[in-house]
Amino acid sequence: MAHRAQWKGHIEIGDFKCAVGLYTASSTSERISFHTINKATGNRVRRDFVDSETDQRVAREDQVKGFEIENGEYLMIDPEEVAAVVPDADKMLDIEAFIPCGKID
């Protein structure tokens, strides 16, 4: 199975423009993944997200990220809002060197 690019973009040098892709050195199928295990019983541990005040479980679609402004007061953050304020310059890729294909495993 072919690896999937983590990032795709273009290199521009003057009037020359070339499509590029960045790939990880290993695929997710080659990584080791661990489960959390109860040391005493050997059973897997289930992660439940529970409201700290009501003790009710919170569904994944009802969970959002937040930043604590004051003790117990949070500013909820929408992922689209964060993406909108990231400067374009942060998406710039600086090239330090070109490596011949024969040098890559």
Rank of each mutant, 00 (worst) to 15 (best):
D78I: 13
A19P: 08
I77E: 01
H10A: 07
H10C: 09
A84V: 02
D90M: 06
E70P: 07
P79Y: 00
K65G: 01
M92K: 10
K8D: 15
K8M: 14
G21T: 12
D48V: 08
S26G: 06
E68M: 12
R46S: 08
V58G: 05
G9R: 07
C101I: 15
S26V: 12
D105H: 04
F67I: 15
L75I: 01
Y74D: 02
W7N: 07
D15E: 14
K17D: 01
E68A: 06
V85L: 08
I104F: 04
R4V: 05
S33R: 06
A84N: 11
F67Y: 10
K39D: 12
R60D: 10
E61G: 06
D105V: 13
E68S: 00
V50L: 12
C101F: 14
R44T: 07
R46Y: 15
F67Q: 04
D62P: 01
T36G: 05
E12F: 01
I13H: 02
E80C: 03
I99C: 03
A89Q: 07
A40C: 13
T54N: 14
G21N: 04
T54A: 04
E81I: 01
T41A: 07
Q6K: 10
P87C: 00
Q6I: 02
M1W: 04
F49A: 06
S52Y: 03
C101V: 11
M76Q: 13
A40E: 15
Q56C: 03
P100I: 00
D55M: 15
E73I: 10
E73M: 15
R47L: 03
G66K: 04
E70Q: 06
E30V: 00
V45C: 06
A5G: 11
W7H: 15
R60V: 11
Q56M: 08
D94I: 14
I69P: 00
D62T: 00
D94Q: 09
G102I: 13
A25M: 07
V58E: 09
V45H: 12
P79T: 00
E80G: 09
E80R: 08
G21P: 09
M76N: 02
D105E: 12
A83T: 06
D78M: 03
V85M: 15
A2R: 07
A19S: 11
D105M: 10
H10K: 08
T28S: 01
R57I: 08
A89M: 10
F98G: 04
P79D: 14
V82S: 12
K103M: 11
L93G: 04
Y74I: 10
I69L: 02
K8N: 06
K91C: 05
R47N: 14
D105C: 02
S26T: 08
